[in-house]
C-alpha cells in the first residue's frame, strides 16, 4: 500500500490521520477487534438466552430487546460518527474524514433497518401491532431514508472529493432528526417508554435485564467499530486503485 513517510518525526495527528500511516497502524487492530467482538457476542448471547430470566410482564419477548436496543443505539451512534466526520470534511477538508463518512453510511442504514425490524417483531406480541406511526418509529424511519439518500448521493458523483462536501452538508442538515428521535418519547404521546437506562436517577431496569442489554450493546458497538475500520481501509485502497488506474491509462495513452 501507500507507504509514504512525509517526515522523520510526524505528529500524533499525522500518524492517526495520514491515509498511508492509517493503513499501517490499523492493520494490527483488525484481528484483535474481530476476536473481542466474537467473545462479546458469545457472552452477550449467553446472558440473553441462558443467564437472564423472562420479564415478569413481557415474558420471553424481553429477549428481543437485547438486539433491538443495541441496533437502535447504533443507528444513532453511527450518525454521530458521520456528523463528526462531516465536520472534519467541511472544516479541515481532511481525506480521512471523507473516508470515515463514506464507510459509515451503509452500516448506519443496516442497523437502522434492523432496529425497525426487531422493533416490529417485538411490537406485534406486546403492543398488538407491527407498526404504528408514533413519534419514535416515524423519526427512525426518516433516519433510514436519510441514510439511503446519503448512500445514493455518494454514488451519484464520480468526483469523490466533491461528493464528500455535498454529503457532509446533507449529513449536518439531517442531524436535526437525531434529537427528534431522542426526545420523541417526551414530546409526544407515544407507545415507546421514556428513557429507562441513561437517567439522572439511575437505570429503572432490573440488573438481570440490564446486564444482557449492556453486554449486547457493547458487542454490537464493537461490531460497528470493526466493520467501520475494515470498510475505511477498503475505501482508502479503492482510492489508491483509482489513482493507479488513472496512471495506467495515462501510460497507455503515452505509449500509443
Amino acid at each position: 500500500m501507500a507507504d509514504t513517510s512525509p517526515n522523520a518525526h510526524p505528529g500524533w495527528f499525522t500518524r492517526i490521520a495520514h491515509p498511508g500511516m492509517f493503513m499501517g497502524w490499523s492493520r494490527h487492530l483488525v484481528l484483535p477487534l474481530v476476536a473481542i467482538t466474537v467473545i462479546a457476542f458469545g457472552v452477550g448471547l449467553y446472558f440473553s438466552f441462558l443467564a437472564s430470566p423472562a420479564d415478569y410482564q413481557m415474558g420471553d419477548t424481553v429477549r428481543m430487546m437485547y438486539v433491538h436496543v443495541p441496533t437502535a443505539w447504533l443507528s444513532q451512534f453511527c450518525y454521530a460518527v458521520m456528523f463528526a466526520s462531516a465536520i472534519g470534511t467541511l472544516v479541515w477538508r481532511h481525506p480521512m474524514a471523507d473516508v470515515s463518512q463514506k464507510a459509515a453510511a451503509p452500516l448506519g442504514a443496516a442497523f437502522t433497518a434492523l432496529a425497525l425490524f426487531t422493533g416490529s417483531m417485538w411490537g406485534r406480541p406486546t403492543w398488538g401491532t407491527f407498526w404504528e406511526w408514533d413519534g419514535r418509529m416515524t423519526s427512525t424511519l426518516v433516519l433510514l431514508f436519510i441514510y439511503l439518500g446519503i448512500i445514493a448521493l455518494w454514488r451519484a458523483f464520480d468526483d469523490q472529493l466533491k461528493a464528500a462536501r455535498i454529503v457532509a452538508v446533507v449529513t449536518l442538515v439531517g442531524a436535526v432528526n437525531i434529537p427528534v428521535i431522542k426526545f420523541s418519547v417526551d414530546w409526544w404521546q407515544t407507545l415507546h417508554q421514556p428513557a429507562s437506562v441513561f437517567r439522572m436517577d439511575g437505570p429503572t431496569v432490573d440488573g438481570s435485564i440490564l446486564v444482557p442489554l449492556l453486554v449486547m450493546t457493547l458487542a454490537f458497538s464493537l461490531l460497528f467499530m470493526t466493520l467501520h475500520l475494515v470498510r475505511m481501509r477498503t475505501e482508502i485502497t479503492r482510492r489508491r486503485i483509482r489513482s493507479l488506474e488513472l496512471a495506467q491509462a495515462r501510460a497507455a495513452g503515452g505509449a500509443a
Binding site: D60, V67, L114, F117, T118
Partner: peptide
C-alpha cells in the same frame, strides 16, 4: 421461549442474516 417464540426467532434470525 414461550408462546411468542416465532417473533423472538424472527428477530434474532433477521439480525443474524443482516449482520
Amino acid at each position: 421461549l414461550g408462546q411468542h417464540w416465532e417473533f423472538i426467532a424472527a428477530a434474532y434470525g433477521g439480525a443474524f442474516a443482516i449482520v
